[in-house]
């Protein structure tokens, strides 16, 4: 009963966090945060659950975005179909490169993904310029047909849709975290040998996690494409490769709320602080240094124990084993 209550409480908190966003933040800012939250959720799962740090997330973001953009620019008008195709493109690409990449660990994994981001960037900018229009990008905002019930081609309609998608993705990751598979992912990060002795294949666990995380990233790319009605190679720029990692660390690695909190903090700094301070990235840099020195927990990772202590003191004691008999 208490566990079920905690489960629904967690969802309510995430729901409220995003809903409040609509009330207090300007619509474009709120939409950007929703997209960035999904983008970061994939990276957070890889880093927090499986222990993979990836500097190649822009590659998967671009795969999703261009999957959607190609359809909406060349073939059709329905944004839902575009979103679905972007998602499938991410699924296919990550399923194909996954078996090669997940054999690598730590810095090699990070670098091979960065290399993929470089490849995708130059493919879109130079090699496939005849169909991607190079730096000019693909403009298809006017091509999209309005959708029934909620018209996602308008900013307010898009917010409702993106809000529901963000919640669905968040609940999916919460379910994964609570599942045996989530435990397997954490176990492969903690001690891969021991997991093998129990009869699990680390390779299969990592491959599936890689596909799940990068399909999520591709979904963020698809949403980006539909929201802006425009995609250019800049989306896969290696210069922005560290963004999702930074946001993940800022929010709190491995925490469910981390991506949302991190996205709010990062986008907030970018949009609000940049109005006051020109070099706002400098502030992010100092903030990250501070977070690392304070214990690598990130904003939510630091706030969570305080909130849990205030709301569910027994839960914290049990987790820590302080109340041992």
């Amino acid at each position: 009963m208490r566990k079920a209550f905690a489960w629904w409480w967690d969802i309510l908190l995430a729901f409220s966090l995003l809903a409040v966003l609509r009330i207090v933040a300007p619509l474009p800012f709120a939409n950007e945060i929703l997209i960035f939250s999904i983008y970061t959720m994939g990276c957070n799962f890889l880093l927090g659950r499986v222990g993979f740090i990836s500097f190649g997330q822009p590659a998967y973001l671009a795969v999703g975005a261009y999957g959607t953009a190609f359809y909406l620019y060349y073939f059709g008008q329905n944004p839902y179909v575009g979103l679905l195709l972007g998602l499938v493109a991410g699924l296919v690409v990550s399923a194909i490169v996954g078996p090669f990449f997940v054999r690598l660990r730590s810095d090699y994994f990070a670098l091979v993904n960065l290399a993929l981001a470089v490849i995708v960037f130059y493919l879109m900018e130079k090699v496939l310029a005849s169909i991607t229009h190079g730096d000019n990008g693909l403009w298809f905002l006017a091509n999209m047909s309005s959708t029934p019930v909620v018209n996602i081609t308008t900013p307010s309609g898009f917010f409702i849709f993106a809000f529901l998608v963000t919640m669905a993705v968040w609940v999916f990751y919460k379910y994964l975290d609570d599942s045996i598979y989530g435990a397997c992912c954490l176990a492969t990060k903690i001690n891969e040998d021991k997991l093998q002795f129990l009869g699990y294949s680390n390779f299969n666990i990592r491959w599936l996690a890689f596909v799940i995380a990068n399909t999520t990233t591709a979904l963020a790319g698809s949403l980006y494409a539909v929201y802006f009605g425009f995609v250019s190679p800049e989306i896969s720029s290696p210069a922005r490769a560290a963004d999702p990692v930074v946001v993940t660390i800022l929010g709190g690695v491995g925490t469910l709320y981390g991506p949302i909190v991190g996205a709010i903090a990062y986008t907030g700094m970018k949009d609000l602080v940049s109005g006051v301070i020109v070099n706002w990235e400098l502030l992010v840099g100092f903030l990250l240094v501070f977070i690392m020195l304070a214990g690598e927990k990130g904003i939510w990772g630091s706030a969570q124990p305080l909130l849990t202590k205030a709301l569910f003191p027994k839960r914290l004691l049990q987790d820590r084993g302080d109340g041992r008999s």
């Binding site: 954490l186 176990a187 903690i190 001690n191 021991k194 997991l195 093998q196 129990l198 699990y200 294949s201």
Partner: peptide
Amino acid sequence: LMSYDIARMGLKYIPQDKKVFSDL
């Protein structure tokens, strides 16, 4: 055979270090 295949066959190994999955 891979160690996980051997474990699935019913031969389990418990290593010396008492490292459990500490976050679980």
